[in-house]
Amino acid sequence: MKFGKMKSHRRNRLLLVLLAIAGTGTAVGLVLMALNKNINLFYAPAEIVAGNAPVGETIRAGGMVVNGSVKRGKDLDVSFVISDLKSSEVTVRYSGILPDLFREGQGVIARGVLRDDGVFVADEVLAKHDEKYMPPEVADVLADAHKDKPQAGKTL
């Protein structure tokens, strides 16, 4: 009786460990695969202009919306230019409703795909809900673009 209990105990433990290993293995694989596919890297306008951003992959881009650059097309098509306020500008196309806080002269982040003609086709445009701070990515873009502050990159 006692022996039998021990045995079932040990067998349970073995099965348990195997189960745990199999489960964890699957989960880790799943996570890595998903992370690999679904990480959206952020690119500054300068990187996009320089051709350092991948074409045809989902990425994010951000900068300040250039004053006077927002143009409406037919239906809900809209295009605008984001800039690091230094030298690099990227045209963004989007179709749909822009967020409440989207405004010219504000920092925005767009998620979408870069076309090989250099136009960024966004499927999502984000502006922060709180107006107090600009999106940190955009702040970094602007700080990086600014050559008077070589240290700024450290604060990323």
Binding site: A27, L30, V31, M33, A34, L35, K37, N38, I39, N40, L41, F42, R60, R111, P136, E137, D140, G153, L156
Partner: peptide, 25 residues
């Protein structure tokens, strides 16, 4: 973690990741 490891390279992990991983579990 990514930002810390790559000296400030920013990424976002959006719903597609969670849908791909969390939903099957």
């Amino acid at each position: 973690a990514y930002e810390a490891l790559t000296d400030g390279r920013k990424i976002s992990v959006g719903p597609p990741y969670f849908n791909a991983v969390f939903v099957p579990i």
